[in-house]
């Protein structure tokens, strides 16, 4: 008989984030499919509020590892917390969200537990009583369905792959799981977050639209000149008006290495593709980007796709976009911005 554990950590506001609620939804659903019990295991400075928020989820127990040592993400302490919660619950299947905090430690925890881990799972289920998951290989180029016999099996669910759990708030009785954080585990200390130097946040995971600014914006245009300032203005203007999330092609270091100009507001984290991100948005709009495979693998989870490119034979034309507008993006975006005003 399987036993399922949902693992969650609190965010900066002391609550579970959306990705965690998605993992909870998946965990509760899997337990129901399997006809088995499930527990919740929570990590954070103080997890009572988070536990109460999900108090009616049906978990048999709410285990907690909490205290100042667990306020922030750190490998040494988080791996202990995850390990302790898994041992306490005795779960055979552990489900957590693919947050940066969990992604950093859960493989280490799986190894300590003598179990296995799969990350970036996009679906899970229990057809004929056997748990299986789907995940992508080779940077979203092919999808596999797999199952495992070794337990515990930690399954890290890709954010955006399941609906978020919703339910009534209810006081949850926490079972504290003591964890001793050794000095060795505390060699690392959290020193804050660093936001991009740009004056504004351009990465918005919840946005409906992904807007990609390709390297073409910084290349010589028909008049033989580069128009960085105009490009920056058009892109930022569109960002304000559309509330889109901003993606880039190529890595910044590639561009700088090639001696190319770069748009000042782009950071590493804007990059989409092979060595960048694979975000989820309902729509994607690419401008001045060729649509080569190492870029387009990052669009796996973008539903509707349109592109503007001066080249009718660019990658987008090869079945990668729904619509390709063969036009000058400078002119098109100036008009789009005007219409959105």
């Amino acid at each position: 008989m399987e036993r399922v554990l949902f693992l969650g950590h609190t965010g900066e506001n002391g609550e579970l984030g959306r990705a965690a609620l998605e993992a909870l939804h998946a965990a509760a659903g899997l337990a129901e499919e399997l006809g088995c019990a499930f527990d919740a295991g929570l990590v954070g400075a103080d997890v009572q509020k988070a536990a109460n928020n999900i108090g009616s989820c049906g978990a048999s127990s709410f285990f907690a590892v909490s205290g100042v040592d667990f306020a922030e993400a750190r490998y040494g302490s988080d791996v202990l917390a995850a390990e302790a919660l898994c041992r306490k619950s005795g779960a055979t299947i552990v489900i957590a969200a693919g947050t940066s905090r969990w992604m950093r430690v859960l493989a280490g925890a799986a190894l300590r537990l003598g179990g296995r881990i799969d990350t970036h799972a996009t679906a899970l289920g229990a057809g004929q009583g056997a748990v299986s998951i789907s995940r992508w290989y080779y940077r979203q180029r092919m999808e596999a369905q797999l199952s495992r016999a070794v337990r515990p099996w930690i399954i890290v669910l890709e954010p955006g792959s399941a609906p978020a759990w919703q339910g009534e708030e209810k006081a949850a009785a926490l079972v504290d799981v003591p964890v001793e954080v050794t000095d060795a585990a505390k060699r690392t200390s959290f020193a804050g977050y660093r936001a991009p130097q740009a004056s504004e946040q351009t990465i918005r995971p919840d946005a409906e639209l992904l807007f990609v600014a390709g390297a073409g914006w910084t290349k010589k245009q028909a008049d033989g000149n580069i128009h960085i300032e105009e490009a920056s203005k058009l892109i930022l203007d569109f960002m304000h008006k559309s509330n889109a999330s901003l993606g880039s092609s190529k890595s910044l270091v590639d561009l700088q290495g090639e001696g190319q100009a770069v748009l000042p507001f782009l950071t590493h984290l804007n990059q989409i593709g092979q060595t960048g991100a694979t975000p989820r948005h309902a729509k994607g709009f690419a401008t001045c980007c060729h649509g080569e495979e190492p870029h387009v693998v990052g669009w796996r989870f973008i539903n509707e796709r349109r592109a503007v490119n001066t080249n009718p034979n660019c990658g987008w034309a090869q079945g990668k976009a729904d619509v390709l507008y063969v036009a000058d993006a400078f002119a098109v975006m100036a008009k789009v911005n005007e219409l959105l005003s």
């Binding site: 596999a144 199952s147 034309a317 729904d322 507008y325 063969v326």
Partner: peptide
């Protein structure tokens, strides 16, 4: 570890070129 199947996504879009 057992793989039930591994497949390429079927998705090839009909690109409308304007």
């Amino acid at each position: 570890l057992s793989f039930q199947h591994v497949a390429l996504p079927a998705e090839q879009r009909e690109t409308r070129i304007v």
